[in-house]
Amino acid sequence: MQVTFGPQVARRVLRYELDRLCEQAGKTHTQAGERLGVSRVGFTHLVSGKNLPSRPALEILLDFFGRPDRIPMMLELLTVAKLKPDQQSTVRQDIESSSSLNDFELAVGLEAVANGIEVFDPMVVNGLLQTEAYARELIAYHASITLGVDIEVSVALRMRRQSVITREESPAELWWVVEEQALHRPVGDSAVMAAQFDHLLDMTSRPNINVQVIPRDVGVHPALSGAFFLLRFDDDWRVAYEETRRSAYYYDAPDAVEDYGKVMNHLRHLALNPKRSRALFAKLRKEVQ
């Protein structure tokens, strides 16, 4: 897949990955700093985004964390992170054992540290709200027409992604707008669909999750080109994301983000409110019994 993004996106994912790999390796910031020959504060500056690591430092850290396999991807991120603010780069990213929408590294990395997620989906239930059985049906079909997809690894990754909205401490706020037609699409048998509607009813009872359904009688609207994400972070930095079958694009220029924000607000205006959307889930749940 061709992935197009700019230096701010690269910096964010680089920071997130360094901190995540450090934690996974059971290392402290002090230990990582010592390995580099700097103080704990020196390493903390790397994972806070104040400084960028050098190429040799990045290689040393990834070897120290026991993840030399991540060196090519991280060096690619470092190259993009050094670009001028108004520049973008297009790189090739292999989607190892992933299923499709958003299960690859840049998207997962950004999503995991976002505090606000807005999504529009026209075709299927969003991955953050899928049951394991529903996800397995989608991923298994994708695997049947795509070489190299590991179904079990892909399903596990899809489920892990959901922790961003289900974690106990500071879960991200999710606002999902979905076309009604996506809810009528049969994915698996009636048991899979019934469980999926039960899950949607359960998830939308959480205070950090809002869902709105665009009724089937709504005609033309500003997102007919397809699904997209808007991600918001603690410092109010925002990025928009969309993908095609062969390419993915990240936009963090203020005018681009504002444009996607206007589209999302228009969709919310056209959609049923969250209460009526939940009532529709309940109605559809009864219909698949």
Rank of each mutant, 00 (worst) to 15 (best):
E258N: 05
G33Q: 02
V9C: 01
H199L: 06
V13N: 06
L58V: 03
I139W: 00
P222W: 05
Y260P: 07
R20H: 13
G66K: 05
Q181H: 13
D19K: 15
V220L: 12
S98Q: 11
Q2Y: 14
A140Y: 01
V288T: 06
L128K: 04
T44E: 10
K27L: 09
L200W: 06
G37E: 14
V119I: 14
P56M: 08
F120Y: 13
V149H: 01
W176D: 04
L77R: 13
T244Y: 12
V178A: 05
H45A: 00
A133C: 11
L61A: 02
Q181S: 15
V13F: 06
V9K: 04
E76C: 09
G42Y: 11
C22N: 12
R268N: 09
F64H: 03
G219I: 05
L270S: 00
E180P: 10
R40D: 07
E23P: 01
I95T: 15
V220K: 15
L231C: 02
F43H: 07
V124A: 06
I60M: 09
L284V: 07
P186K: 11
E118K: 13
S54R: 04
E96P: 00
P274D: 03
L147V: 14
K82A: 14
R278W: 10
L200K: 03
L128W: 04
Q2M: 09
T30K: 12
V124F: 00
K286Q: 06
F5T: 01
S277E: 11
H266S: 02
S225Y: 11
H266F: 03
G226E: 09
S89Q: 13
R15A: 10
A253T: 08
E242I: 14
L14A: 01
R285S: 13
R136Y: 03
P56D: 12
V213K: 06
A271Y: 01
F104T: 15
R285C: 11
V218W: 04
L157H: 10
E287H: 10
E34L: 08
V153W: 08
E23K: 13
V192M: 00
A133H: 11
A279P: 07
F229K: 00
V91T: 11
Y134A: 04
D121R: 05
A227I: 12
L46A: 05
